[in-house]
Simulated scan of single mutants.
Amino acid sequence: MSLKRFLTSSAFFKNLVVALVIVIVFLFAIVKFLDFSTNHGEEINVPDITKMKLEVAEEKLDEEGLEVFLLDTVDFKPEFPPYTIVEQDPRPGSKVKDGRKIYVKLNAGGFSTVTLPDLINKTFRQAANTIRTLGLQEGKLKYVPNIAKDVVLEIHQNGKKLKAGDKILKNSTIDFVLGDGKELFSDENDSIPSQEQDSIE
């Protein structure tokens, strides 16, 4: 049988149809296998692991088929227990695939210390901006007689006088002693004119 006759014969078309069916079935089987191996359509709700110790979070995520990856330790946040997770990505409730890594940040064990700069003779506004930048908080203000109004004369913490260079914990409360802008004359100064008058006499 010549090639031309074979290509136009019914046997050729039957074989062609069978071959196409086999190819289609094979491709369908591959797609199904890939769907199964990649958990296509199956998603996991990310649990809330904030305020958990890292070891506890690892166990919980492992049960869900997820992994935890520590990114960094952040400055201490008092609303979270020490050494617990303060941030996670993806966030709780997000839908992810099996095996996805959950990136977390850990709370520090406590407040770090800062060095107190020289704030004496600074205006209260300047001093307040400086301590906020350092992570400190403004406390009580006490005014005493002094010609320099709203200028820092002393700094205290829990009744203890502080000086430049002292180490204090972040989030500490700092109290200020400020000038009230008034100048009081002492009894000595008040008596000078009378003394001068006596000497003249």
Rank of each mutant, 00 (worst) to 15 (best):
P145W: 04
N121K: 11
I200Y: 13
V151F: 06
N129Q: 13
V25K: 02
S186P: 07
T130S: 12
A29C: 08
A29F: 09
T123D: 05
E79F: 06
E42F: 04
T38E: 05
D190F: 14
V144D: 04
V151H: 00
I174N: 03
S10V: 08
G135P: 05
G65R: 00
E201R: 14
Q88P: 02
L66F: 01
I147F: 14
S186A: 10
Q137D: 09
H156C: 05
G109Q: 08
K170M: 09
S37Y: 12
P82W: 04
K160L: 13
N146T: 07
V177D: 04
K101E: 10
F36Y: 15
D118I: 06
G99K: 07
S10H: 10
S9C: 09
T113H: 08
T84Q: 06
S194K: 14
L119W: 00
S186L: 11
E64T: 02
I147S: 14
I120K: 03
D175L: 07
N39P: 00
S10G: 10
F111R: 02
L136Y: 00
G99I: 05
I131P: 01
R132M: 11
A127N: 05
P193H: 07
T115R: 11
F36D: 09
K4E: 14
I85K: 01
D166Y: 02
I174F: 00
L7F: 15
F69G: 00
M1I: 12
T38L: 10
D118V: 06
P82S: 05
K97W: 02
P92L: 04
E154C: 01
L3C: 07
F111V: 05
E87G: 03
H40A: 15
F28P: 02
P47W: 02
K122Y: 10
L134Y: 05
S94T: 06
D198N: 11
K160Q: 13
F13R: 12
L119V: 07
S191K: 14
H156W: 14
D72R: 08
I147G: 07
V151T: 11
N15P: 00
N107Y: 03
K101P: 07
P81I: 00
E87A: 08
P145Q: 09
N39D: 13
P145I: 05
E183A: 14
T130D: 10
F26S: 15
T130I: 15
T84V: 07
P78G: 02
